[in-house]
Amino acid sequence: MRLFEIGLVVATLASGFIWLLDALFFAARRKRNAGLLDDGKDPVVVDYAKAFFPVLAIVLILRSFVAEPFRIPSNSMMPTLLTGDFILVNKFSYGLRLPISNTKIFAVGEPKRGDVIVFKPPQSPDQDWIKRIIGLPGDTVAYRGNQVYVNGKPFEYQYVGEYVGKGSGAEMTGASQLTEKLPGRPHAILELDKAAFDQGEGEWTVPPGHYFVMGDNRDRSDDARFWPSHFLPEQNIRGKAFMIWMNCDSIGSLCKNNFDTSRIGSGIQ
Protein backbone atom coordinates (compact mmCIF):
# COMPACT_ATOMS: atom_id res chain seq x y z
CA MET A 1 0.00 0.00 0.00
CA ARG A 2 2.84 2.41 0.86
CA LEU A 3 4.64 1.64 -2.42
CA PHE A 4 1.43 2.37 -4.34
CA GLU A 5 1.06 5.68 -2.48
CA ILE A 6 4.64 6.69 -3.26
CA GLY A 7 4.22 5.64 -6.89
CA LEU A 8 1.00 7.64 -7.21
CA VAL A 9 2.61 10.79 -5.82
CA VAL A 10 5.69 10.41 -8.03
CA ALA A 11 3.60 9.77 -11.16
CA THR A 12 1.34 12.76 -10.45
CA LEU A 13 4.25 15.12 -9.86
CA ALA A 14 6.19 13.84 -12.87
CA SER A 15 3.28 14.15 -15.30
CA GLY A 16 2.39 17.59 -13.95
CA PHE A 17 6.00 18.76 -14.22
CA ILE A 18 6.32 17.55 -17.82
CA TRP A 19 3.08 19.30 -18.79
CA LEU A 20 4.13 22.54 -17.08
CA LEU A 21 7.64 22.45 -18.52
CA ASP A 22 6.26 21.97 -22.02
CA ALA A 23 3.71 24.76 -21.61
CA LEU A 24 6.36 27.24 -20.42
CA PHE A 25 9.21 26.49 -22.82
CA PHE A 26 8.30 24.27 -25.78
CA ALA A 27 4.64 24.52 -26.79
CA ALA A 28 4.93 28.04 -28.23
CA ARG A 29 8.06 27.09 -30.21
CA ARG A 30 6.31 24.09 -31.76
CA LYS A 31 3.36 26.29 -32.73
CA ARG A 32 5.64 28.82 -34.43
CA ASN A 33 7.49 26.09 -36.34
CA ALA A 34 4.39 24.22 -37.40
CA GLY A 35 4.45 23.53 -41.11
CA LEU A 36 8.23 23.88 -41.43
CA LEU A 37 10.39 21.24 -39.77
CA ASP A 38 7.85 20.56 -37.05
CA ASP A 39 4.30 19.30 -37.49
CA GLY A 40 3.27 21.16 -34.33
CA LYS A 41 2.06 18.03 -32.56
CA ASP A 42 2.87 17.32 -28.92
CA PRO A 43 5.63 14.79 -28.31
CA VAL A 44 4.37 11.42 -27.09
CA VAL A 45 5.64 11.98 -23.53
CA VAL A 46 3.85 15.34 -23.33
CA ASP A 47 0.69 13.88 -24.80
CA TYR A 48 0.67 11.14 -22.14
CA ALA A 49 1.41 13.66 -19.39
CA LYS A 50 -1.57 15.81 -20.42
CA ALA A 51 -3.82 12.77 -20.51
CA PHE A 52 -2.77 11.20 -17.22
CA PHE A 53 -2.08 14.19 -14.97
CA PRO A 54 -5.74 15.21 -14.36
CA VAL A 55 -6.73 11.61 -13.62
CA LEU A 56 -3.77 11.00 -11.32
CA ALA A 57 -4.32 14.30 -9.52
CA ILE A 58 -7.99 13.53 -8.86
CA VAL A 59 -7.17 10.01 -7.58
CA LEU A 60 -4.41 11.38 -5.35
CA ILE A 61 -6.67 14.07 -3.87
CA LEU A 62 -9.56 11.69 -3.25
CA ARG A 63 -7.31 8.99 -1.79
CA SER A 64 -5.31 11.35 0.41
CA PHE A 65 -8.00 13.68 1.71
CA VAL A 66 -11.43 12.05 1.21
CA ALA A 67 -11.56 8.24 1.28
CA GLU A 68 -9.05 5.44 0.79
CA PRO A 69 -9.75 1.75 0.10
CA PHE A 70 -8.20 -1.03 2.16
CA ARG A 71 -8.54 -4.80 2.21
CA ILE A 72 -8.86 -6.73 5.48
CA PRO A 73 -6.08 -9.38 5.44
CA SER A 74 -6.78 -11.28 8.67
CA ASN A 75 -9.41 -12.43 11.17
CA SER A 76 -8.41 -10.01 13.95
CA MET A 77 -11.58 -7.88 13.66
CA MET A 78 -14.14 -10.71 13.37
CA PRO A 79 -17.08 -10.70 13.50
CA THR A 80 -17.23 -6.96 12.69
CA LEU A 81 -14.93 -7.33 9.69
CA LEU A 82 -14.09 -10.53 7.83
CA THR A 83 -11.00 -11.53 5.90
CA GLY A 84 -11.52 -10.32 2.35
CA ASP A 85 -13.66 -7.30 3.22
CA PHE A 86 -12.77 -4.28 1.11
CA ILE A 87 -13.44 -1.19 3.19
CA LEU A 88 -13.44 2.58 2.77
CA VAL A 89 -11.62 4.75 5.27
CA ASN A 90 -12.66 8.35 5.86
CA LYS A 91 -9.45 10.39 5.60
CA PHE A 92 -11.18 13.60 6.72
CA SER A 93 -12.56 12.39 10.09
CA TYR A 94 -9.56 13.44 12.15
CA GLY A 95 -8.00 16.07 9.90
CA LEU A 96 -6.17 16.46 6.61
CA ARG A 97 -2.85 14.64 6.32
CA LEU A 98 -0.16 14.76 3.67
CA PRO A 99 0.35 11.60 1.61
CA ILE A 100 3.37 9.39 2.40
CA SER A 101 4.46 11.29 5.55
CA ASN A 102 0.93 11.23 7.08
CA THR A 103 1.68 14.63 8.64
CA LYS A 104 -1.48 16.40 9.81
CA ILE A 105 -1.90 19.81 8.20
CA PHE A 106 -5.43 20.63 9.34
CA ALA A 107 -7.23 19.31 12.42
CA VAL A 108 -10.94 18.47 12.17
CA GLY A 109 -11.88 16.14 15.02
CA GLU A 110 -10.44 13.68 17.50
CA PRO A 111 -10.71 9.88 17.53
CA LYS A 112 -13.48 8.58 19.80
CA ARG A 113 -13.70 5.48 21.92
CA GLY A 114 -15.14 2.69 19.80
CA ASP A 115 -13.96 4.04 16.44
CA VAL A 116 -12.56 1.43 14.05
CA ILE A 117 -9.39 2.90 12.61
CA VAL A 118 -6.68 2.11 10.09
CA PHE A 119 -3.17 2.95 11.26
CA LYS A 120 0.51 2.17 10.98
CA PRO A 121 1.62 0.18 14.05
CA PRO A 122 4.76 1.53 15.75
CA GLN A 123 6.58 -1.79 15.37
CA SER A 124 5.66 -2.16 11.66
CA PRO A 125 5.41 1.38 10.21
CA ASP A 126 5.42 0.08 6.63
CA GLN A 127 2.13 -1.79 7.15
CA ASP A 128 -1.53 -0.78 7.56
CA TRP A 129 -3.48 -2.42 10.41
CA ILE A 130 -7.05 -2.05 11.63
CA LYS A 131 -8.35 -2.18 15.22
CA ARG A 132 -10.88 -0.54 17.52
CA ILE A 133 -10.03 2.32 19.88
CA ILE A 134 -10.59 1.28 23.49
CA GLY A 135 -8.50 3.77 25.46
CA LEU A 136 -8.17 7.52 24.94
CA PRO A 137 -5.31 9.73 26.16
CA GLY A 138 -5.28 9.73 29.96
CA ASP A 139 -7.41 6.57 30.32
CA THR A 140 -6.34 3.59 32.40
CA VAL A 141 -7.23 0.42 30.49
CA ALA A 142 -7.17 -3.06 31.99
CA TYR A 143 -7.88 -6.48 30.54
CA ARG A 144 -8.53 -9.32 32.96
CA GLY A 145 -10.57 -12.50 32.62
CA ASN A 146 -11.73 -11.65 29.08
CA GLN A 147 -13.15 -8.36 30.35
CA VAL A 148 -12.15 -4.78 29.52
CA TYR A 149 -11.99 -2.11 32.21
CA VAL A 150 -11.63 1.60 31.49
CA ASN A 151 -10.80 3.86 34.41
CA GLY A 152 -11.80 1.10 36.81
CA LYS A 153 -15.24 0.48 35.27
CA PRO A 154 -15.82 -2.86 33.53
CA PHE A 155 -17.63 -3.10 30.23
CA GLU A 156 -20.83 -5.13 30.30
CA TYR A 157 -21.24 -8.16 28.04
CA GLN A 158 -24.21 -10.01 26.62
CA TYR A 159 -23.87 -13.54 25.28
CA VAL A 160 -25.24 -13.86 21.73
CA GLY A 161 -24.47 -17.47 20.90
CA GLU A 162 -21.96 -19.82 19.34
CA TYR A 163 -20.28 -18.31 16.31
CA VAL A 164 -20.27 -20.15 12.99
CA GLY A 165 -17.53 -18.99 10.66
CA LYS A 166 -17.04 -19.57 6.97
CA GLY A 167 -14.17 -19.33 4.53
CA SER A 168 -11.05 -17.98 6.18
CA GLY A 169 -13.06 -17.41 9.36
CA ALA A 170 -14.03 -21.04 9.76
CA GLU A 171 -11.32 -21.44 12.40
CA MET A 172 -13.47 -19.36 14.76
CA THR A 173 -16.46 -21.70 14.55
CA GLY A 174 -17.45 -22.61 18.10
CA ALA A 175 -16.18 -19.35 19.63
CA SER A 176 -18.53 -17.36 21.83
CA GLN A 177 -20.04 -14.28 20.22
CA LEU A 178 -20.86 -11.52 22.67
CA THR A 179 -22.00 -7.92 22.53
CA GLU A 180 -19.45 -5.72 24.27
CA LYS A 181 -21.43 -2.79 25.62
CA LEU A 182 -18.88 -0.07 25.13
CA PRO A 183 -20.70 3.13 26.16
CA GLY A 184 -22.33 4.64 23.07
CA ARG A 185 -20.80 2.02 20.76
CA PRO A 186 -21.94 -1.54 21.49
CA HIS A 187 -20.36 -4.04 19.11
CA ALA A 188 -19.83 -7.75 18.60
CA ILE A 189 -16.71 -9.57 19.77
CA LEU A 190 -15.47 -13.17 19.69
CA GLU A 191 -13.85 -15.11 22.51
CA LEU A 192 -12.46 -18.63 22.64
CA ASP A 193 -13.69 -20.44 25.73
CA LYS A 194 -10.48 -22.43 26.16
CA ALA A 195 -7.65 -20.32 24.83
CA ALA A 196 -4.35 -22.01 25.65
CA PHE A 197 -2.11 -19.00 25.16
CA ASP A 198 -1.29 -15.57 26.55
CA GLN A 199 -4.49 -13.55 26.95
CA GLY A 200 -2.62 -10.26 27.10
CA GLU A 201 -3.86 -9.39 30.57
CA GLY A 202 -2.56 -6.25 32.21
CA GLU A 203 -3.22 -2.61 33.00
CA TRP A 204 -2.00 0.38 31.06
CA THR A 205 -2.33 4.17 31.38
CA VAL A 206 -2.54 5.83 27.98
CA PRO A 207 -0.11 8.77 27.60
CA PRO A 208 -1.05 12.07 25.93
CA GLY A 209 -1.22 11.88 22.14
CA HIS A 210 -1.66 8.10 22.13
CA TYR A 211 -4.46 5.52 21.99
CA PHE A 212 -5.02 1.95 23.16
CA VAL A 213 -6.46 -0.31 20.45
CA MET A 214 -7.79 -3.86 20.42
CA GLY A 215 -9.22 -6.27 17.86
CA ASP A 216 -12.78 -7.52 18.18
CA ASN A 217 -11.54 -11.11 17.80
CA ARG A 218 -9.89 -11.03 21.21
CA ASP A 219 -7.95 -14.28 20.97
CA ARG A 220 -6.74 -13.78 17.40
CA SER A 221 -5.59 -10.17 17.51
CA ASP A 222 -2.07 -8.77 17.75
CA ASP A 223 -3.05 -5.50 19.36
CA ALA A 224 -1.86 -3.00 21.97
CA ARG A 225 -1.97 -5.63 24.72
CA PHE A 226 1.03 -7.34 23.15
CA TRP A 227 3.00 -4.46 21.60
CA PRO A 228 6.33 -3.43 23.16
CA SER A 229 5.04 0.14 23.54
CA HIS A 230 1.35 -0.81 24.17
CA PHE A 231 0.17 2.47 22.64
CA LEU A 232 -0.62 3.89 19.21
CA PRO A 233 0.72 7.41 18.49
CA GLU A 234 -1.92 9.76 17.10
CA GLN A 235 0.28 10.63 14.11
CA ASN A 236 0.15 6.98 12.96
CA ILE A 237 -3.63 7.04 12.42
CA ARG A 238 -4.65 7.06 8.75
CA GLY A 239 -8.41 7.35 9.09
CA LYS A 240 -11.73 5.96 10.32
CA ALA A 241 -13.24 2.88 8.67
CA PHE A 242 -16.87 3.48 7.77
CA MET A 243 -18.12 1.14 5.02
CA ILE A 244 -17.62 -2.26 3.38
CA TRP A 245 -17.82 -1.88 -0.39
CA MET A 246 -16.94 -5.44 -1.40
CA ASN A 247 -16.04 -8.82 0.06
CA CYS A 248 -13.88 -11.44 -1.56
CA ASP A 249 -12.50 -14.16 0.70
CA SER A 250 -9.70 -15.83 -1.21
CA ILE A 251 -6.39 -17.58 -0.85
CA GLY A 252 -3.76 -15.45 -2.53
CA SER A 253 -4.80 -12.54 -4.69
CA LEU A 254 -7.51 -14.12 -6.87
CA CYS A 255 -11.11 -13.88 -5.73
CA LYS A 256 -12.48 -16.44 -8.21
CA ASN A 257 -16.09 -17.07 -7.14
CA ASN A 258 -15.76 -16.19 -3.47
CA PHE A 259 -17.73 -12.93 -3.49
CA ASP A 260 -20.17 -12.28 -0.64
CA THR A 261 -22.58 -9.70 -2.03
CA SER A 262 -24.53 -9.51 1.25
CA ARG A 263 -21.74 -7.43 2.81
CA ILE A 264 -21.67 -4.75 0.11
CA GLY A 265 -22.61 -1.35 1.50
CA SER A 266 -22.56 -2.48 5.15
CA GLY A 267 -21.62 0.21 7.65
CA ILE A 268 -18.88 -0.39 10.22
CA GLN A 269 -19.99 0.03 13.84
Rank of each mutant, 00 (worst) to 15 (best):
W204I: 04
A49H: 02
N217V: 00
P154S: 15
N247G: 05
A11V: 12
N75I: 14
V45C: 10
I189M: 08
R225V: 00
G267P: 07
G161Q: 07
K240Q: 10
E110W: 02
E162F: 08
G174E: 13
Y159C: 04
Q123E: 15
V118A: 15
W204C: 03
R144N: 13
K153A: 11
W245T: 09
F155L: 15
P233F: 07
A188F: 07
E68G: 01
D126F: 09
I251W: 10
L192H: 12
T140W: 05
K104I: 07
E234V: 06
G84T: 04
H210K: 15
G40E: 05
F4L: 11
L36H: 09
K153R: 14
I61S: 09
I268V: 13
T179A: 02
P73H: 00
D139V: 05
L232M: 13
T205D: 06
P73L: 03
P183Y: 08
L182G: 01
L82Y: 00
G209D: 14
E201D: 06
L56P: 02
S176Y: 10
G35S: 05
D47P: 02
K120E: 10
L8F: 05
T205F: 04
A175K: 02
Q147L: 07
G209M: 09
Y211F: 15
F4Q: 11
L21S: 14
A14V: 14
L192P: 05
R29M: 12
T140N: 04
P69T: 11
R218E: 07
I251V: 10
F17L: 13
S229I: 15
R63S: 11
A195Y: 14
R220E: 12
W227H: 06
G169Q: 02
K31I: 08
F226V: 00
V46E: 06
G114K: 04
V150W: 05
K50R: 15
Y159W: 08
V108T: 14
F231M: 11
S74D: 12
D47C: 09
L24T: 12
A175G: 07
P233I: 09
A107N: 10
C248A: 06
D198T: 01
D22R: 03
D42E: 14
L88R: 11
D222Q: 08
C255H: 00
G184T: 02
N90A: 09
I105Q: 07
D115M: 07
H187L: 11
D219T: 00
P122A: 10
M77G: 01
N90L: 08
I189C: 05
N151F: 06
D219H: 14
D222F: 01
Q158P: 05
C248N: 01
L81I: 08
R220K: 13
L3Y: 13
V45F: 12
Y149P: 00
S101K: 07
F53E: 02
E156D: 15
K41G: 12
D47Q: 14
R113D: 05
V141H: 00
I268S: 03
A188W: 04
F212R: 00
T205P: 09
G145A: 14
W245F: 15
F4I: 05
Q147N: 13
P43F: 08
C255V: 01
A57R: 05
Y211Q: 05
L8G: 09
N258Q: 13
K131M: 09
P183S: 09
R29C: 04
I87H: 01
Q199S: 12
A170T: 12
W245L: 06
D115Y: 01
I251P: 00
L3M: 10
W129K: 03
G161S: 08
F25T: 14
S101P: 03
T179M: 08
D198P: 08
Q123C: 04
